[in-house]
């Protein structure tokens, strides 16, 4: 079943049975952060696809490049330091990297929008929350101010905040409520693609479930496709159809949720699952993955995970691994010739 793919990134891994059209296709995306004395390779030849109406999880530890990928798709990388060195981001067939800033402004918040990690800082502290939602609507739709206001009230109520709170300011809301406002802003123009960058990380556990449930309900209602960025495998299991495991700016394993959860093959993915606390092993120590992710400014020659791999081979330190197809939907980037057990 294993079939090695030699050219690395032209991947046709998704289920043949999934007939939904591809809405977003990221091909060979490479992003660097340039500072005075070093170049950090944050995203290295990342490719993935997202089908309309589905949810793709990007999972990986902090600093793996997940947020950079998301910001690159939306075109909101900091223009001073970040540099997109190559690749294509095809959204509905057109390359977003080729579009002008003006054209991108029409897409942002309208067809693609994003929910940010920290609701505490994602809202403008001196602007009424209703106006912040209204702003997103007015930018993309020709409405009178009264209509825009009404739509903003509707959005507030849709995310479970009473419309009377339109004129309140962010500091009058709790973290969970703020995240609802952020979600309302993101969904205000019914986007085709929603990028959720760790939408629940900054919230406490009781609120996390509420916010996730709400997001998923709205996603179903609006038919939005979602990229869910998280380091929480539980959230992935609950919400995602497809999963891409990101390590050191690369997709190291990718497949349907079943592929990843039942047949995890890359030693990093295996390590991620092993490091979760288990319900049965009471009192056992957690099994962390030893070591640190390589410095993006100084990437190793071979496999970026070789240093931390429990079973590395000689070639792992010298040659970059290539993608290996384990099934129609499941690929892994590892030198070993894995078989799905």
């Amino acid at each position: 079943m294993a079939d090695q793919n030699r050219d690395g990134f032209t991947l046709q891994y998704q289920a043949v049975s999934d007939k939904r059209e591809i809405i977003l296709q990221v091909k060979d995306l490479t992003v660097e952060y340039v500072t005075d004395d070093e170049v950090a390779k944050a995203v290295n030849h990342v490719s993935f696809e997202l089908r309309s109406g589905s949810t793709l999880g990007l999972v990986g530890e902090t600093g793996a490049g997940k947020t950079t990928i998301a910001k690159a798709v939306l075109g909101v990388l900091p223009d001073v330091s970040a540099r997109i060195c190559g690749g294509e981001i095809l959204f509905n067939g057109s390359d977003l990297l080729e579009l002008s800033e003006m054209e991108m402004q029409k897409i942002r918040g309208n067809q693609i929008s994003m929910i940010f990690q920290d609701p505490m800082t994602a809202l403008n502290p001196t602007m009424k929350i209703g106006d912040q939602i209204k702003e997103a609507i007015m930018l993309h739709e020709k409405l009178s101010h009264a209509e825009g206001e009404k739509r903003a009230v509707d959005m507030l109520e849709m995310v479970g905040i009473p419309g009377e709170r339109y004129s309140d300011y962010p500091h009058q809301f709790s973290g969970g409520m703020k995240q609802r406002v952020v979600i309302a802003i993101a969904l205000a123009c019914k986007p085709q693609l929603l990028i959720a960058d760790e939408p629940t990380t900054a919230l406490d556990v009781t609120i996390q479930a509420q916010v996730l449930d709400m997001m998923m309900k709205l996603k179903m209602e609006l038919g939005t496709s979602v990229i869910m960025i998280t380091h929480d495998l539980g959230i992935i299991a609950e919400t995602c159809d497809y999963v891409a495991v990101i390590y050191s700016g690369e997709v190291v394993e990718c497949g349907t949720s079943e592929d990843i959860f039942d047949y995890a093959s890359h030693p990093y993915t295996v390590g991620l699952f092993a490091s979760l606390p288990s319900r049965s092993g009471k009192g056992e120590r957690l099994k962390p993955i030893k070591g640190m992710m390589p410095d993006p400014a100084d990437l190793p020659e071979g496999c970026p995970f070789a240093e931390r791999c429990p079973c590395p081979e000689k070639q792992c330190f010298s040659t970059k691994p290539e993608y290996l197809h384990l099934s129609d939907t499941h690929i892994v980037k590892c030198c070993k010739r894995w078989e799905r057990q």
């Binding site: 909101v76 994602a122 403008n124 702003e135 802003i185």
Partner: peptide, 25 residues
């Protein structure tokens, strides 16, 4: 600040991001 990125993600123009969001703060 993050809320500037939020404004950018809404599709707001650079000039308006400065005048409507950053300046007041």
């Amino acid at each position: 600040q993050d809320y500037i990125t939020t404004a950018k993600a809404k599709g707001q123009t650079k000039e308006k991001i400065i005048t409507r969001h950053a300046l007041k703060n």
